[in-house]
Design a binder for these strands. Structure first.
Lengths: 359, 359
DNA sequence: CAACTGCGAAAAATCGATTTACTCATTTGG
DNA sequence: CCAAATGAGTAAATCGATTTTTCGCAGTTG
């Protein structure tokens, strides 16, 4: 029988102890790297561990501790590159510190968000990284506060009086977008956004409007916002271009700034429907970058969020709190990068070829 | 003091027991829904649970069981829509059965894949859903086999002699793509793919080639494959179009079929570089759909994988095994949907406007 | 030489549940 | 009417570690 039989139950610390001729407590100390063990005994433990293929059971190990080495991560969704990268990063960072990451998707629902949090509280996780659906004032953060959980809020948050927050510097990025668009001569710009209640929407809108108005007081900024769902936004956008403000030919905005990825998709889809091309008929910039944006024609200009920095600082802050760090909560803003690609041009530069509703 | 103090440790089963005036064993039975408890006692337990806000600690609960109510999921990456949706689905299905899903990304590395599996084995997970980096013969599946773990393999697998497998019916979908392209008159087609070792590449390629040759024996099918990394594929594709076979004007393929999402992106990016437009200069179909593909111009034709079906049947098979289901492993193939969009046209229909290397 | 100090390791308690074995009652059967 | 069977519940063992307490023994000190 050359290789070890696998079907039996795994060796426990007691199996190792009896093989090594020491007590379980000694094995535990050796595994934990305590130095007060006689070298000879330590060696015998190592040998037994090797022989039996012993590995500590994290579940049993965590049982006796106050804080368990589990981190919870709650994201609004897993389908986008942004949150996908975020989970990848968080998992990697948790693993580096010997923690296990349990990730769950709230699927853009605050009710589910709270349920997940309750389950994570049941697991007595050491900490939670919460990317709330709306903002820092939801029931989930409330629950964490009420139950004395330690956590960090990321992405759609500004600052909080109970938890550290880490998010992209939406305002600064939006200001730069404004500078770019105004600089290219745009004086009528539509801002579209999804998630009216999201903390960052306000920041992005204000950052954009403030800078745009400062640079060009005569600029006209229209706003189309919708709460969470995509379909209402699609309808609103259609209406906007059909009727009044955005509709009539010469009175149409020359650029669109979308505050969220989904908004960018909706805008593009609406342009398609109308036969408008970027950047000749209209310019487009979106918050949130995606891999496909640089291979399409035109390539879509986008604000790139610093995922690694956000994840890194979130975990840093979280572990500092887990290890007992005191002090008032800190709100961190990470700088974004604005990639101006082909979807942005100067107004009136193109033939305004489309324009009709191609129904 | 209106609301319960939160900073103290959570109530244990013993706290509930003493409040209800029964033993911990009785509480355990009530929580488990055992009927042999006197209704009066059951009620007192319920009241105490309500009063104290007691919830079972899943960690402690799992300790005493042989199989723990944890499912592990290992995906090659989290950044794509496909695996994002997959994790969302798996999490939801696990939760429905009262299990917790622990997801980890192998980041396209077989070494990491095995490390993750070792850690999941440490957790003594009840089962694993593994989407291997290459195919069913990697070290990860080997490890699962050697340690008697129960699991299901999905996506980049065909069939296995130890585990159930669930994947998209790549061959059938590729055959349909072939029918469409041949039907539109294409007789020179380039197939590009990433992940030379992936089980599904062979199936997709064979499915495509078989049907194409059957329908049009004179068809010319070129193949450009690269192992895992994107950059080599980009270079190979550039060479292909520069030199020999794909290079000269009249001798260029009229359609490209990409076997993987990344390949579709690389192809698009190469078309960009050369100034070729779809479908006039060249047609494009990709395996794997993405949200952006229907809003770009042209919309990109794609094979849609049935994520929900794959996830659903994978979990079904997994839980059947967890609950002791016997029988030979089963290989399931889920039918895909082929969405022919604007990126596919008939050859020679367009002006072949581009063609130069626009360096 | 008794008392003291300390080191290293073993024994025992603990974490929070589940499960087994066992104890009383109360019923049922012969 | 007594024995066997059933019902309802509890004490204790268990899961696999960690942590605290206790203990034995060697070497110092007064």
């Amino acid at each position: 029988m050359a290789h070890r039989q696998a079907q039996q139950r795994r060796p426990s610390i007691h199996d190792v102890a009896s093989h090594a001729g020491v007590s379980a407590a000694t094995v535990s100390k050796v595994m934990a790297g305590v130095t007060t063990v006689k070298p000879e005994n330590a060696q015998r433990v190592f040998d037994a561990v090797e022989l039996l293929g012993y590995r500590v059971d994290p579940l049993a190990s965590d049982m006796r501790r106050a804080k368990r080495r589990i981190i919870g991560a709650i994201m609004p969704e897993f389908e986008s590159e942004f949150f996908g990268q975020m989970v990848t990063q968080l998992e990697s960072l948790a693993e580096q510190r010997g923690y296990t990451l349990v990730a769950a998707s709230s699927r853009e629902s605050e009710a589910r968000e709270k349920e997940i949090l309750e389950r994570m509280h049941d697991w007595r996780v050491a900490g939670v990284v919460l990317a709330p659906v709306r903002n820092e004032h939801g029931p989930a953060a409330e629950f964490m506060k009420a139950n004395g959980m330690t956590g960090v809020l990321i992405d759609r948050v500004l600052s909080d009086d109970a938890f550290d927050t880490v998010s992209a510097d939406s305002a600064a990025a939006s200001a730069e977008v404004a500078r770019e668009l105004i600089g290219k001569g745009h004086r009528h710009i539509l801002v579209v956004g999804l998630g009216e209640q999201a903390a960052t929407v306000r920041a992005r809108l204000d950052g954009f409007r403030g800078t745009a108005l400062a640079l060009a007081p005569d600029v006209r900024i229209d706003v189309v916002l919708a709460e969470s769902d995509v379909e209402p936004l699609r309808a609103q956008l259609r209406d906007y271009f059909d009727q009044g403000e955005g509709g009539s030919r010469g009175n149409r905005p020359t650029a669109v700034y979308s505050l969220f990825l989904k908004g960018t998709l909706v805008a593009l889809s609406e342009f398609r429907r109308r036969g408008w091309h970027c950047p000749n008929d209209i310019s487009l910039v979106g918050f949130d970058d995606a891999e496909w944006m640089q291979v399409t024609w035109p390539a879509i200009a986008a604000v790139v969020q610093p995922v690694r920095q956000i994840a890194g600082h979130a975990m840093e802050a979280l572990f500092a709190r887990i290890e007992g760090g005191e002090g008032p909560p800190r709100a961190r803003l990470e700088p974004c990068q604005v990639l101006m690609r082909e979807s942005v041009g100067s107004p009136g530069n193109g033939p305004h070829s489309g324009g009709g509703n191609r129904q």
